[in-house]
């Protein structure tokens, strides 16, 4: 598998670390235990397009958000997660 890092270009899987589903959003301070529980534990088991976090630890150290099809492994987009990495790169 190869991932096209927006900063480093096309690189091999071994440079990246997978974290998991990029869909859940961390609740605000003061959120209820149930909300945080869902954020920490609840994941969809998707057959098809998913978004997921990958860390380019063997490269630019950016956290990336990949859109990947779990049926074909096709990666349709790779973006800096939350855009913070992109701002850093532009500087």
């Amino acid at each position: 598998m190869r991932i096209v890092c927006p900063f480093c270009g096309e690189r091999e899987l071994g440079e990246f670390t997978y974290l998991g589903d990029a869909k859940p959003v961390r609740p605000e301070a003061g959120a209820s235990e149930d909300e945080v529980f869902d954020y920490v534990y609840l994941r969809d088991n998707v057959a098809g397009q998913t978004s997921e976090y990958w860390y380019h630890g063997g490269g630019c150290r950016a956290w990336l958000k990949l859109t990947r099809n779990t049926l074909t492994h096709e990666i349709s987009s790779v973006e800096p997660a939350a855009g913070v990495g992109a701002r850093q790169a532009v500087k």
């Binding site: 974290l19 961390r26 976090y53 860390y55 630890g57 956290w63 800096p80 997660a81 939350a82 855009g83």
Partner: peptide
């Protein structure tokens, strides 16, 4: 050592992008 760095980068980039920290 490596995992904490990765975790902190996740917090910085993904969870708390509004903070001005490197």
């Amino acid at each position: 050592a490596g995992l904490v760095m990765q975790h902190l980068e996740f917090c910085r980039q993904v969870l708390f992008p509004e903070l001005d920290v490197q």
